[in-house]
């Protein structure tokens, strides 16, 4: 068996188990830490797919910035555990049934329409080569320059929105 295939299977098992762990954990902090591990495995998938820049962006933005923000809010609110309220008895089985239907649909659409039996070549030295990131940068700053600038405006709007939302009104304690 190919070494990359073994690596892929191990990573796939870790990714699915951490996603399940996130769903099952009672405490929101554990859920967040499971999700960090999940994002890290997905980052390694990106490396295996020959996308080093996306892998680094995944680690810094998702596993770094976004999850730190999540942990910060969880600890700020002290809301890592919710009291158990009344639970709808049919909610969980129905949700699992609907999720199974969704998975079957997605599998059917993906595998019936596409000729995807072809293997993807292993990324060899090209991941380390500067050409990969160079091509990405050329494309991003030439062909996609306008969307890139719009993204900066989006982030600015999000920042202003967050400040306005969480600002205390005058006179409010």
């Amino acid at each position: 068996m190919d070494l990359t295939l073994i690596l892929f299977i191990v990573l796939a098992v870790v990714a699915i188990l951490t996603a399940l762990g996130m769903l099952a954990s009672r405490s929101a902090i554990y859920a967040a830490l499971f999700l960090v591990l999940n994002f890290a495995t997905v980052a390694i998938f990106y490396l295996m797919l020959g996308a080093p820049f996306i892998a680094m962006a995944q680690v810094t933005v998702y596993a770094g910035a976004i999850m730190v923000l999540f942990l910060f809010v969880i600890m700020l609110l002290g809301a890592e555990k919710l009291p158990k309220g009344e639970v709808l008895p049919w909610q969980r089985p129905l949700a699992i049934g609907l999720a199974a239907v969704l998975l079957a649909e997605a599998g059917y659409l993906l595998f019936q329409r596409l000729h995807i039996t072809a293997g993807l070549a292993n990324p060899g030295a090209e991941v380390n080569a500067p050409e990969a990131i160079q091509a990405m940068a050329l494309s991003l700053f030439n062909q996609y320059l306008l969307p890139f600038e719009v993204t900066s405006v989006l982030l600015l709007v999000a920042m202003v929105g967050v400040i306005v939302l969480t600002k205390k009104e005058k006179g409010e304690s």
Binding site: A15, I16, F45, L110, F111, I116, G119, A121
Partner: peptide, 10 residues
């Protein structure tokens, strides 16, 4: 060689 289908399944 990992088939594209595996990634799509994950």
């Amino acid at each position: 060689m990992i088939p594209l289908a595996y990634y799509l399944a994950i």
